[in-house]
Nucleic acid binder design. Structure first.
Lengths: 228, 228
DNA sequence: CGTGCGTTTGATTGGTCTCAAAGTCTGTGG
DNA sequence: CCACAGACTTTGAGACCAATCAAACGCACG
């Protein structure tokens, strides 16, 4: 089903990462991962790692998108986060992952051996600080997302669209890589409510939905008002 | 209003922390903070730090309890976490706090200069790893809490009671330090729903509520079933 | 013994879920 | 190129749960 092997696209570049780090600003410090990682190709809905598995690798999205999630006993799924091109995930401090991860669409991921980063962090405090900063950013993102989860359906969807637009670096039109079910599980709603809410936002003129994956932010003011 | 100055109870112990760290297991590594910190006393609902303020200190609860929270434009408040005796908070990697923090009840906090920890982390990779681990634990806690926020009122309250009992190290009786409003803002519900749900759980025999702050877990099995 | 805050209880409303069915898109094979 | 199957999305009707508005209750405090 979701199990789908990835194919190696390029070999590692052993490199001398220390130099490149020294002056790297934290923002794009993840660029250093390039020198340590391998590119791999994944199909749609492919498993990247499972909850409880050892944390052997760290990933950066090159193209496509990924999601991390947890599943409740009753089968409900909560998506913790989506990861878009350029973003890093899978960096747990613990020995095992506490979320599962899958691709949302056909994707290319940069895969980096966690041990390589950890040993680097032991001698290079900038690397250690990067690990901390990446986890802290993740924490901040999840805390912000919690604020979204306590709001109304309209507000959640508006927040989601604005978040995606910002993270994809676009102003007024987003090409969503994920399905309605993914959005629903991310926002704590049902697919029907997602669909109805989009229709509703379209009827008020806030957005346009030319195709179900493409959404035009027609009135950012109105969306921002819901964003609060 | 909430502003309330804290009183210093003891002086810093400059100390030689390096030795103590070397072999310290990560679990109680925060014990090292003792050697760097100062004890301060706070009143009820006292502000500890505000969102956006510089991250000058890290805190550990000695007695009492604290909460971190964010406020929406419409005034709604989401409590990110409660901190009980022994727990650490305020450790943001960024230069400014992205949550506000207040005491829940009269409390004594161990206050540690962040810069002292950071400079230690530059030379001592165990300290750096501790910073990372503490933030990662926080991330894990918030992710788990997200799962709670997508559930029914009964389930949320049951999860909350079990969580508090476990963190307070008690088996079947919890003395809640926080008000109904705090619980509501933590669980994304209203005070009325909290109250009704507790009454409901009491009527089914799952709990007893002798006083409004004291709750007896009468049937953990039933609560665990809701915990899922 | 009031006073005020926090909590509980009640009645009603409204938003989201659930169940159900119709509609749309995509990829596949003839 | 078209027809078809399957998955995904949209729309509809009704039920249910939690929010809201309102009032009574209990407890700590002066």
């Amino acid at each position: 089903m979701l199990m789908q092997n990835a194919q190696t696209l390029s070999a590692t570049h052993p490199a001398k990462p220390l130099d490149r780090w020294a002056a790297a600003p934290l923002g794009d410090a993840a660029a250093v991962l390039d020198t340590l990682g391998v590119r791999m190709s994944y199909g749609r809905n492919a498993e990247i790692f499972g909850e409880g598995e050892p944390t052997a690798y760290v990933y950066r999205v090159v193209s496509g998108a990924a999601r991390t999630y947890k599943v409740l006993d009753d089968g409900r799924r909560q998506i913790s986060a989506f990861y878009l091109p350029g973003e890093v995930f899978g960096l747990d401090a613990a020995e095992t992952h506490h979320c599962s991860a899958e691709t949302v669409a056909r994707s290319v991921l940069l895969v980096v051996k966690r041990s390589a980063i950890l040993s680097l962090a032991e001698t290079e405090h900038r690397t250690a600080h990067l690990l901390w900063a990446l986890t802290a950013r993740e924490l901040q993102r999840v805390q912000t997302h919690m604020l979204v989860l306590i709001r109304s359906a309209q507000e959640r969807v508006a927040c989601f669209l604005l978040e995606m637009a910002e993270r994809m670096g676009v102003v007024d039109q987003v090409e969503l890589p994920m399905s309605r079910q993914d959005i629903a599980d991310y926002l704590g709603l049902t697919i029907e409510t997602i669909s109805r809410t989009l229709t509703q936002l379209e009827s008020t003129g806030a957005i346009l939905v030319p195709t179900c994956r493409r959404i035009v932010l027609r009135d950012r003011r109105a969306l921002k008002r819901l964003h609060a």
